[in-house]
Each structure stands twice: as structure tokens, then as C-alpha cells.
């Protein structure tokens, strides 16, 4: 079936695929995950704060992001970021920030909405009885949070946060629509240059599968380790 396919094209392009493409993908994933978790924590705390206005603002942001396709958000920020940059710096013309910076901003802001939901659910999943028990022992609000609620919530959330990061890793392939050279972008460029679509896309699928499957397997192992027995 594969007799007229030439898989040597893969070997020839390995340095480009990994040295450039995969490095880009991993960098974008790591930075956006970090930024997303930080901003997501902020959003979750805003949503749980109970302060009128703040709660609603965070909710609106999260719901809006979650109702839009990532591709549309990528386009939005690609065109919006230069204007935001101009506004921040007081420049009269849109600032050219580059596609990577634009992608990083996009993924950070987009994934933050998803991370925030995981955090919120994680904190709310700790039964009210636990807070009540801690209060009954004389703990203050912050002691209750720090000593009782968060340690349990974090254990519950950690696997979900990591799984969401794997999703983010897969989602970064969509920077293809900005013609960036992430792993998929690199594979696609080689594929089109050499006319080897079958070989390159199959190889890309295989690499993504290997990475994500291994990572999810590690997350599952971690999950059984940190799980709290009830």
C-alpha cells in the first residue's frame, strides 16, 4: 500500500522538525501554561470572591472565552494585539509585536479561562463539611483555606491542570493558521515543499500521539498517587 511513498523524507527533515518546530511548540506550551495558570488562578479567585462586579466580570470573561472557537480567538488577537500595544505605549500606529508574541498572548488568555474553571471546581468540590469542621476547630478563614481546603483541592486539581496542559500542547498546532513554524507547521512546510503529505502528516500524528499518550499515562499514574482516599 505504501510502495510509492518515500519515508526517507522524514529522516532528512528531523533536525528542522524537532530543532525548530518542536522547540517552538514546547516553548509556547510551557509559557502559555504558566501564564494561563497564573491568570486562571486570578480569575478563579475573582469568581469566588463574592465581590459584586468582580465575580460577574470574571464570569463574563470565562464564559465568553469558552463560547468562542480557538481559531477565531487566534485571529482576534493577531489583529488586536498590535492595537493594544499601541494603546499601552501611547503610540499613534499599531505596534508590530510578531506572531509568536501574539500567539503567546492568545493561548495565555484563552487557556486561562479553562484553567480558572478547573480551579473553581476544585475549590468548590471540597465539601462544605470540611470548612465547617475546620471552623469548628477554631481556624480562621485563611487557615481553613491554607491548611484544609487548598491542600485537598490542589490534589484534586493537579491531574486536571496537567491534562488541560496536554490539551494546550495539542491546541498549539492551530498556530498553523498564522503560518507559524511550530511542529505541525514545520511538518506541513516540508510536506508541501517535497510533495510528501502522506508521509509527513502520518509522522506528525505519530509524534503527537506518542507525546500525548505518554504524558496522559504519567498523569494517570500521578493521579492514583495523589488521590485522597475517602
Amino acid at each position: 500500500m505504501f510502495s510509492n511513498f518515500d519515508f526517507s523524507v522524514i529522516a532528512a527533515s528531523l533536525p528542522y522538525l524537532f530543532g525548530q518546530g518542536m522547540v517552538f511548540t514546547l516553548t509556547l506550551t510551557a509559557l502559555a501554561a504558566t501564564g494561563g495558570i497564573v491568570f486562571g488562578t486570578g480569575l478563579a479567585m475573582m469568581r469566588l470572591s463574592g465581590i459584586p462586579g468582580v465575580t460577574q466580570a470574571a464570569k463574563l470573561y470565562v464564559e465568553l472565552m469558552r463560547s468562542l472557537p480557538l481559531v477565531l480567538v487566534i485571529f482576534w488577537f493577531y489583529f488586536l494585539v498590535p492595537y493594544i500595544g499601541a494603546w499601552v505605549t501611547g503610540s499613534a500606529t499599531p505596534i508590530q509585536v510578531g506572531a509568536f508574541a501574539s500567539a503567546l498572548v492568545t493561548f495565555t488568555l484563552f487557556e486561562a479561562a479553562y484553567f480558572a474553571e478547573i480551579m473553581r471546581a476544585g475549590i468548590q468540590s471540597i465539601a462544605k463539611g470540611q470548612s465547617a469542621a475546620a471552623s469548628a476547630l477554631g481556624m480562621s478563614y485563611w487557615q481553613t483555606m491554607r491548611l484544609v481546603v487548598l491542600p485537598q483541592a490542589l490534589r484534586n486539581m493537579l491531574p486536571l491542570l496537567l491534562t488541560q496542559t496536554i490539551v494546550l500542547f495539542q491546541d498549539t498546532s492551530l498556530v498553523y493558521v498564522l503560518s507559524l513554524t511550530d511542529f505541525m507547521g514545520a511538518a506541513s512546510k516540508v510536506a508541501q515543499r517535497d510533495g510528501r503529505l502522506v508521509e509527513m502528516y502520518l509522522f506528525a500524528a505519530l509524534v503527537y500521539f506518542a507525546v500525548c499518550f505518554t504524558a496522559s499515562w504519567l498523569v494517570r499514574r500521578l493521579q492514583t498517587r495523589v488521590a485522597i482516599i475517602r
Binding site: 502522506v198 503527537y208 496522559s216
Partner: peptide, 23 residues
């Protein structure tokens, strides 16, 4: 489930569109 969850949707889209007709 593992197969379809661990490959990005974009890559799957290309497999269906570009690769499947060739194989």
C-alpha cells in the same frame, strides 16, 4: 479513545483530507 484523544484535531483533519484519499 486513546487514539482519537491523543492526536490534535488539526492533524486528524489533515489525515482525513490529505492522507486518506492517497492510501
Amino acid at each position: 479513545v486513546e487514539l482519537f484523544r491523543n492526536v490534535p484535531l488539526l492533524v486528524q483533519m489533515f489525515l482525513w483530507y490529505f492522507v486518506l484519499p492517497e492510501v
